[in-house]
């Protein structure tokens, strides 16, 4: 199948690649651009390990075709920190031991960041339902929820 030239923006950088029309955005990020922070845990949109934002919308990049990213803005885990400065969510995840194996962590961080942009003051229940599409098999979610709530509190304080 002939490949399609795709021009997109990934974490603010202009990126071009040739995509087979059958390839997912996740495949393109990982195999063509070398951004392996987004993970494939299922390939069916159930686990959320591949979460990225596409023009600001939270998506499972395994359910988006690479060619669909043409002309759009993609944000991945690799763009979350501001240079050497971690996003508060990233800091809080380390501080709260909110990761064990760390495989689901990039997707959860991307999803949680979108939550806090949408709702800066979520309840525990809101955090749990927002992250219900991101599977973690190691932690039982307890420390993840605490880290997100704590990061939310810090961000609110910064904003105030």
């Amino acid at each position: 199948m002939s490949k399609v030239h795709v021009t997109t923006s990934v974490n603010g950088d202009e990126v071009e690649f040739l995509a087979d029309p059958r390839e997912t955005l996740l495949d393109c990020l990982r195999d063509h651009i070398g951004l392996t922070g987004s993970k494939e845990g299922c390939g069916t949109g159930d686990c959320g390990a591949c979460s990225v934002t596409l023009d600001g919308t939270l998506v499972c990049s395994c359910l988006v075709l690479g060619v669909e990213a043409d002309g759009k803005r993609v944000e991945t885990i690799e763009g979350m920190a501001d240079g050497a400065e971690l996003h508060p969510l990233q800091r809080k995840f380390i501080e709260h031991a909110a990761l064990q194996c760390g495989f689901c962590t990039p997707g959860i961080l991307v999803a949680a960041k979108k939550l806090l942009e949408t709702n800066p003051n979520p309840t525990e229940e809101e955090v749990r339902y927002w992250l219900a599409g991101n599977l973690c098999r190691c932690t039982g979610y307890d420390k993840i929820i605490r880290a997100v709530m704590d990061a939310a509190a810090e961000l609110r304080q910064e904003a105030a």
């Binding site: 922070g37 885990i77 990233q90 995840f93 990761l99 760390g102």
Partner: peptide, 9 residues
Amino acid sequence: DGLDKVTGR
């Protein structure tokens, strides 16, 4: 290994 795991590295 926390930093590597929250940055996707």
